[in-house]
Amino acid sequence: NAALGREVLASSTCGRPATRACDASDPRRAHPAALLTSAGGPASPLCWRSDLLPRAPLNVTLTVSLGKAFELVFVSLRFCSAPPASVALLKSQDHGRSWTPLAFFSSYCGLDYGRLPAPVDGLAGPGPEALCFPAPQAQPDGGGLLAFSVQDGSPPGLDLDSSPVLQDWVTATDIRIVLTRPAMLGDTRDAEAMVPYSYSAMELQVGGRCKCNGHASRCLLDTQGQLICDCRHGTEGPDCGRCKPFYCDRPWQRATAREAHTCLACSCNSHARRCRFNMELYRLSGRRSGGVCLNCRHNTAGRHCHYCREGFYRDPGRALSDRHACRACDCHPVGAAGKTCNQTTGQCPCKDGVTGLTCNRCASGFQQSRSPVAPCVKTP
């Protein structure tokens, strides 16, 4: 129950000002919305109660923030009195900034929500949609239960692992229940028919699991008290929804039952701490590797910091990952024709008659001259 212990915001709660039946300042006679998600559950005799609603609009909303994204399974609300004749169930995926309907419950689908009643023989469309179901029935004890399963609006056969549409359908950060029309009042546009009424409920449950996209097996409270996934597979974020900074050798993907889709670390031979993903390289590699190392250190260069930058050459006696794997060419300022040596052998380009790895000696049959332009001349 993702709603357990979470704060519920009710647009109307009785007791302010106090009446004989309800006094918000007296714990024995208060009926706060917190009762809906407290641990007391159905065993608790206390109910949340709205203010008396003498005239339309009779909408009362109950909003519960789940703290992070969850994958819903069901939502239920147990009423203490006769359940409303019309209820809208909404969800938010962006912490309450926008809302989309999950389902409607009404004896007046067209009148209250402009919708046709849900077809009894299944969904018409290929994807999940918010349908209008019959209003919850009053129970013999005078209460009633509103119950919604995410399967109720979803075509059979969709698999959560393979259906992004279904993944989107079940994802919610907040749940809102709009009690639209009280029971018994019929068409509330008829002012003559209206009598003071209040909604009353005892338990709100939001069945679901912490959404971690398959990359965590548990959720934890962070230092700010926020619920977050304990991410693995090289992922991070509240929902493990992205790869960690250095783990971008291939695109982030949701894990499935068959494949973890681990975010892979870039291959930088221990010479870089950052990398970026390049989709074109990823495609060219046959969808195997798209990471490009950034800021190669230790005089290395290349996509994987796998060769030496200009002016340096590979020391064959050291491993590629060694911080001294690349040695400076050290070409002689007079004997060499340039400063860049062969990156593999370290051989500098020598002027005529000059020899040596760094071009620092005259070749056999040559001797040093006084000219820095032609430092070695043939021995007479």
Binding site: V334, V354, N360, R361, C362, Q368, S371, P372
Partner: peptide, 23 residues
């Protein structure tokens, strides 16, 4: 035969001052 390394002190930089390396 191992030749001696080039002796920088032997070079005459008179006409090549702009090429002279910093030591």
């Amino acid at each position: 035969e191992v030749m001696p390394t080039l002796d920088m002190a032997l070079f005459d930089w008179t006409d090549y001052e702009d090429l002279k390396p910093e030591v």
